[in-house]
Amino acid sequence: MSQVRKRWLQQGAGSSGRGRAVGRRHRPELTVYSGYQALAGVYDCLNREIDYGRWSAFLEACFDRFLPARPRIVLDLACGTGRMTFPLADRGYDMIGIDGSEDMLAEAYRKSTERTIRLLDEAGTDELPAGVTTPLFLCQDMRSFELYGTVDAAVCCLDSINYLCGDGDLDACLACLYLYIAPGGLLVFDVNSPVTFEKVYGGNAYILEDTAPAADGQPSAPAVYCGWQNEYDPGTHLCRFYLSVFREEKDGRYVRTDEEQTERCFSRGELEAALDRAGFDLCGIFGGFDFTPAGESDTRWHIVARTRKTGDWYLCPDGHGTERKTEYHE
């Protein structure tokens, strides 16, 4: 099994902490990507330490705890390569995955095909087992996505909300979620907390390594290395990630791709106010999967909220929500 190691580096020469290039005198200009173009193919292997099974169990526990009935259709917003979508689909939910990156969704489609083939082989038939569905993946912006109808619950995992960096982006995203989540439906998302931006990110640099030892009689998997430099500005609450990915080729050479990303730090007050403006009632902010209330020292906050809709909510042909006068009771 591959091993992923994360090593912290002391800051190097210069105020930015980014090391100086050595080697060839004339270095070619590098293309710097954004939107997970450089990371899509290696994202899963660099995040092997994440226990998606345990995380999906927590999401299901949120459904059980805060909903009167089991949700049928669940939206996975900013689903990426589908690492959370598939565990929830395996639990019997009818999943919709939305992501703005074509490269990440290409990985999700590939895994979806492999999953379908595996399930058909296990069943020994040409049809999927009863209660098992294939997720629907859509390439859309999380601030302005559209669906054909409502969902019973929505999840947004792995600090995807922190990528809403522009003024009004958080409000736009929550407004879309409110529109498409059914009355009394649930929203579960997580964010990196302020202590993560200040202490873990800050101006620190890390090396992520994924090296796979060879199995008996089998060649070793290509190694992947990622250099990760952070640059957090407490004034703007924005943290820039400078990522350099080195991926081993079959001939032993390494191909380098560079990418820049940005996350925004949200305070607890900002999140609560945005949820209230969008029409959500806060159910709780938790510091872990055991539903312990989040504290200032927790590096990740898990937020659970319920839509504050009344009446029989339905979608008009123009895509706007409308509600009748009848009150909705839980």
Rank of each mutant, 00 (worst) to 15 (best):
P68T: 02
G311S: 03
R300V: 07
D290S: 05
E259S: 06
G269T: 12
A78R: 02
E127R: 15
P71C: 04
D121T: 14
R143G: 00
D44H: 12
A205S: 10
L164G: 01
V195S: 08
R143M: 03
E248M: 04
L275S: 01
L147T: 02
R118I: 04
V255F: 13
G202H: 13
D76C: 03
K325I: 08
T134W: 08
D312T: 06
G227Q: 02
G168M: 13
C239I: 06
I303Q: 01
A153H: 06
G202K: 12
R118S: 10
R7Y: 09
S34A: 14
R72V: 08
L243H: 00
W8I: 12
E260F: 15
G149E: 05
T81K: 08
R83W: 01
R115M: 09
W313N: 00
G295A: 06
S101P: 06
R72K: 10
P234I: 12
Y254F: 15
R7E: 10
L67G: 00
P183Y: 12
A305Q: 04
L186D: 01
R256K: 10
G53P: 01
D281E: 07
T236L: 09
E60H: 14
T292Y: 08
Y206S: 01
A13H: 11
Y225N: 03
T299S: 03
Y178M: 07
G80Y: 10
G41K: 13
G227T: 05
R54Y: 09
L105R: 02
Y52D: 03
I96A: 03
I50L: 15
L164P: 00
R253E: 07
Y52K: 09
L105P: 00
R253A: 07
G235L: 11
C139I: 04
F289V: 03
H329E: 09
L315W: 11
T211C: 08
G124Q: 13
H237W: 14
L243E: 01
E323P: 00
E102H: 15
V224E: 01
M104R: 11
D210L: 05
G202N: 12
Y148A: 03
L177H: 11
G100S: 15
I50Y: 15
C265Y: 09
E29G: 04
D152C: 02
